[in-house]
Design a protein around this nucleic acid. Structure first.
Lengths: 175, 175
DNA sequence: CTCTTGTCATTCGAATTTGTACCAAAACCA
DNA sequence: TGGTTTTGGTACAAATTCGAATGACAAGAG
């Protein structure tokens, strides 16, 4: 099937007005919110957002512990990055490293008592920021839609192989 | 008015299930998406997302130019961070610095011809990623809701003073 | 006009992140 | 069992980010 003469060379499907507005606002909001969260945590407890997320994730696990690689994957952070941050948290006594019983190579990051207290002390202020600038601005329906949107996006990315991106869904190549 | 005995000491309003799910999914999606975007841009054109955003913002301005501070504010990046990135882009010939006519101190970041071409070459792949993992997963209604959500959040944060955050809206202090 | 204060951009140092290289240990396989 | 391939975590170098300090210029008060 030949292409008619009057189709553009590039078949890029650009964003329409609504889509572009949504994307731009999303990027802006994300940067602003990250900054607010970072500020609050820093001044309120000396933690970075990355560190807070580590403590939070660990606190949800039975025994407050998790393998390094598993933790890195859940936080969507590089392994070396996690090694660094666990080191920082260990220095502050909020986390300890323990040997993994089932795997000689493995290392468990373990939340300490102090870590638990720090988290409990910090969480209210953190939640307050998330509420003040995001959640409390939305109707319950909007919150629910946001959950759906972000869940779908997350699922899409976790499904697709992370390497070189396949920009277009399976179909005949242009030519 | 005395507090009844059976209210908790901390009056933190925690996130309910839907709110928590929305927030967690948002954080995860944001990290994953940032990673995808970064990968695509890097392998596709050697740009970082930060650099792409600079080029994109400049391209929307008449003359493809903007003052440094103004640009930093719009991108929600520190001035020193922008100085660094403009340096990188200048090194690659995608941007030039020019003196500001109206203010001796001012510096204009100006998009070059090469910068325009680079942007035009890179944009399709970038849009493809945004579509593949976010926009195309959503109904038009969801896109619109996302726009509203993110616009409201952005407005809230741009309105509130950036310094030490006032965690709770005006009201009596706990005591 | 002069002084004081505020703004613009850069430089510098500190902190953080990522990818690659590496070693130890596990998993696999003939 | 002996050898090969993966996997888990860390060490290291490179890149990027921010905040504070700096120097030049602008703006306002007197």
């Amino acid at each position: 099937m030949n292409k008619p003469y009057n189709v553009p060379v590039s078949d890029t499907k650009w964003l329409n007005e609504s889509e572009m507005a949504a994307w731009v606002a999303y990027v802006a909001a994300t940067h602003l919110l990250e900054r607010r969260v970072e500020d609050q945590l820093k001044t309120d407890s000396g933690l970075t957002h990355a560190q807070y997320e580590i403590l939070a994730k660990l606190s949800q696990e039975p025994g407050g512990q998790m393998r390094m690689t598993e933790l890195a994957n859940r936080l969507i952070v590089s392994k070396s990055g996690l090694t660094y941050q666990i080191g920082q948290l260990e220095r502050r006594g909020l986390v300890t490293r323990a040997a993994c019983p089932s795997d000689e190579r493995g290392v468990l990051a373990v939340l300490t008592e102090e870590g638990v207290r720090c988290l409990e002390r910090t969480a209210p202020g953190h939640v307050a920021v998330v509420r003040a600038f995001l959640i409390d601005r939305l109707t319950p329906e909007e919150v629910e839609t946001m959950r759906q949107i972000m869940t779908k996006a997350t699922a899409a990315m976790e499904a697709a192989p992370a390497g070189p991106l396949r920009a277009r869904p399976p179909g005949k190549s242009p030519g």
